[in-house]
Amino acid sequence: MRTKPTLSFTPIGPPLPRTRELGPVVELVAGGGVLVLSGAGLSTESGIPDYRGHAGSLRKHTPMTYGEFVGSADARRRYWARSHVGWRTIARADPNAGHRAVAELRRGGLVAGVITQNVDGLHQAAGTTSVVELHGGLDRVLCLDCGDVTARAELDRRLAAANPDFAHTTAEVNPDGDVALPQHLVDRFHVVDCSGCHGTLKPDVVFFGENVPRPRVELCNALVDRARAVLVLGSSLTVMSGLRFVRRAHAASIPVAIVNQGETRGDPHAAHRVDLPLGPALTDLARLLA
Rank of each mutant, 00 (worst) to 15 (best):
W87F: 15
H168P: 05
P277Y: 01
H54G: 14
P49S: 12
G209Y: 11
E263I: 12
T169N: 02
R188Y: 09
A40K: 07
E27P: 01
V149P: 13
V259D: 00
L35H: 06
V34P: 14
R152A: 01
M1S: 15
C220F: 10
K4M: 10
A55D: 08
L288F: 05
D165Q: 11
A286L: 01
L223A: 11
S195N: 05
V230D: 05
W80Q: 08
T62P: 01
P164G: 12
L276N: 13
A227R: 00
T62N: 08
R287M: 13
T89D: 04
P213V: 03
G53I: 09
T238R: 13
C194Q: 00
T44R: 06
D165F: 06
A81T: 13
T65N: 05
G71H: 04
R18D: 05
K4P: 03
K60C: 10
R18K: 13
P175Y: 00
D176G: 06
A227V: 09
G31T: 15
V111P: 09
V70T: 15
V132G: 09
R107D: 04
N260C: 14
R82C: 04
V192P: 06
V246H: 05
D284W: 06
Y79G: 02
A153W: 09
A252V: 12
G121V: 02
V256P: 02
V274D: 03
A153I: 13
V246R: 02
S195W: 07
L181Y: 01
M64R: 14
T10P: 07
E218C: 12
N163C: 00
S83I: 10
R244T: 04
V114F: 04
G67H: 15
R214L: 14
G279R: 06
Q124P: 05
V132C: 10
S235F: 00
D275W: 10
L16F: 12
L181Q: 00
G67V: 11
H272W: 14
L142W: 12
H54A: 14
R20G: 15
L185M: 01
F189D: 02
R107K: 09
N260M: 10
G147E: 13
A281M: 08
V232M: 02
R228C: 08
E21I: 15
A251R: 03
R77M: 13
A222W: 10
L285E: 01
A112D: 11
D178H: 01
